[in-house]
Structure formats: C-alpha cells, structure tokens
Design a protein around this nucleic acid. Sequence first.
DNA 1: GTAGTCTGTCTAACACCGTTAGACACTAGC
DNA 2: GCTAGTGTCTAACGGTGTTAGACAGACTAC
Lengths: 198, 198
Amino acid sequence: MPTDPPTTATRAPSSHAAVGITVAAIADAALSVIRAVGVDGLTMRGVAERLGVRAPSLYHHMRNKADLLDLVARNAFDEFAADEAAYGELRSIDEWIELTRTGSLEFRAFYAAHPGLAGLMQAKATPDRDQGDGSRAALIRVQIESLTRLGVPEPRARHLFEVSARWSLAAVVANLPDDLFADGLDVFLAGLKAQLTT
Amino acid sequence: MPTDPPTTATRAPSSHAAVGITVAAIADAALSVIRAVGVDGLTMRGVAERLGVRAPSLYHHMRNKADLLDLVARNAFDEFAADEAAYGELRSIDEWIELTRTGSLEFRAFYAAHPGLAGLMQAKATPDRDQGDGSRAALIRVQIESLTRLGVPEPRARHLFEVSARWSLAAVVANLPDDLFADGLDVFLAGLKAQLTT
DNA sequence: GTAGTCTGTCTAACACCGTTAGACACTAGC
DNA sequence: GCTAGTGTCTAACGGTGTTAGACAGACTAC
C-alpha cells in the first residue's frame, strides 16, 4: 500500500529511499511515454527511467504491465470525459444525434493524439459499463437519462446507447481515415435516428 | 528463393537436409498456431516447432515475423472470400442490404474462429484496396458492380461500400458481443439503405 | 538515543522473444 | 568425384516482462 501524498517523482539516482514513486506518478509517466513512442513502444524500463527509477521498483506499486495499461486507459478516459459534462437541456432526438456526432468526433480526435490508447479502452470497455465512480460512468448516465427524458424507454435507451458507443469506439480504434470515419458516422447516426423516432 | 513443389512439412528432427520447408507450409503452420493460441501467442519458435524445425530456418523463407503475419492474413481472407463468389443477380437495394448483412455476420463468425486475425487484416486493409489478384479484390469488385447495376453512381457506390466494409471490419476486430454486433449492424444498414435509396 | 519494523528502492537473474552469423549436411550438375 | 548451391542447424545478441532477495532510509517505541 503506497503512500499517496508525496507525488514528487524525480529523485536522486541510485539512492535507497523509503519514500519514492506514486501510482499516479507512474500512470502520468506511462501516458507521456505513450505520447512520445505510442503504446507499442511503452516499456516498463522506459516508464521507470522517466521517473528516475529502475523497472523492478514499479512492481512495488502495481501487479504487472497489464494493470498499468488498464490504469492509463482509465485516466485518459476520465481526462476526456471531464470536458463533456454538459448534456441535459436537449429538446429533441435530433439534438441528441448531433451531440453524439460531435462527441464521437471529439473522442476520435482525442485518441488520435494518443496513439494506440483507444485499443486499451476497448479491451476494458465491457466489465464496468455504467455503475461506478469515474467521470466515464457519469457521462454514460447523463446520456442515457437525456434519452429517456425524450421519451425513449429505459432499457431500449441504454441498449441503443451502448450499441452506438461500442461501434463508434470500434471505428476509433480502427483508425480510419477522416472521410471514412465521418461518413460512416453519418450512416450510423441516420440509422440510429430512424430507430429512435419510430 | 524457395522451391515450391515439395510441400511436405514434417521431417526427421535434426537432419541437415537441402530440401525442407515451404512458404505455404509455414503459413499453414502459423494459421493453426493462431487457431490454438491466438495471434498474441504466435511465436516464430512455435511455428517452427510445428514444422519440426528450428526458428532460424524460417528466416530462409521470409524476411521477418511481420511478413509472416501479413501472409497469414491474406491467406485467411482468400479462404473466406472463396465462399462468397455469388453476387450478381440482385434485383433491389433491399436484396443488396440483406446480402451485406449475412456477409458481415459470416465474416464475423469466420474471424471469431481465428482469434486476433481480424486485427491483422485491418492493418493491411488500406494499401491494396481494389486493384489486384486475390479473391479479396474480386469480391470487392463484384459487390461494387452489383450496386452500380442497381443505379448507384460509380464513385458513390465505391465509397459507400468502402465505408460499410471498414466499419464492419472495425466492429469485427472489436470483438463485440453477439447482440451488440447484430444490433449495431441493423442500425448501420438502416442508415446505409436510407443513403442508397435517396 | 537506541532498537526494531516497515517501506521502497536496488542489483542480479530468469525465461522468453525476434533476429543474425556462421557452420555444416545434403542434393544436383558437371 | 568434385563443386556449387540450398536449407537446415547451433550459438549468440539485445530486448522484453517479471521475480528474488539484499539493503538503505525513515518512522515508532521505549
């Protein structure tokens, strides 16, 4: 169980100290490594080096690399979702569709800036769908509620939201060219609107 | 430059022979390794072992692992596409939509049987879109032609086909649960039909 | 102040990966 | 029989994630 308060990461190299790195610091370092060399280029030794530390030290704070990637993906999504709080005053399905469109495009742009990160999200998309703590869960709840307020019955709203979210995420991960992504999104949202208004 | 005719793969272990493994045999072995342990579990040493050979021998027939994966993906698609020859006598957009639906579902089923293989396809989907030799290219041409025969102008038909193919492939790679995939496909095809009939 | 415990780093090593260098056995052509 | 070429082999390199165990520093109790 690591002590959280001292978030300072850089230390004198090769000193044996009792207070060192933090889980949060490791996640930050990993994210900046990903920005620099992509997910495929991320290495436990590389992350450690960025913290002025050796690789085995990381294992005192997390079980393995998979956990680290998991954490990074979660952080990245929360960072994105924090900007997307204001749904709420939607007056029609059309407005919901348009908001979903811009949200998807922003989502894509965000992940384009973090090569390979979307792939991590995808692997972890299943288990913790809605219930929970992060801004991810909050964002999902808000979107479904705004649908039900517009007259779509609850289970159907949840399901259709999940379908569109997962398909959009899939297309983001696929890293399609701009036009293929945007036009496919048009097609998908046209079909979604048809299913929501009948 | 390997000699192709002798496709026999299994040999006496630890004999120095002048006639041995084939590129095709390596690709087959790799595919069966993927069936057994998935793409992530595929190893040059593992492929070699399945051929009764050591790993370095593989490099006499291919440049590196990436080339091997490339080849495997191509073979797998051709194997799938060979079953999908009969488009042609489509009498309406509705029939085209339905054929695309069943094609997508079969595509998904095929790749579900080869864990991770779809991801390889995706990475190689861009460069050699239509022109070419394989059954992949043939299948694509047939689908676009059947669209133009139904009155959709050529460039638009090509583009919409590409959009739907890439989005479907993305959803396949994402390995969505059955209902999320099928329902999303419904949504997408509903939108596609709307764009094709107006 | 001293002893003891706990925390968090370190070095060393393991098994595995893709890949290369170079040796050697076998085959085919003359 | 000799020679050239082909295709395997062993050995090794540098890299990866990960574990074991040593040890330094900081807190706690007396």
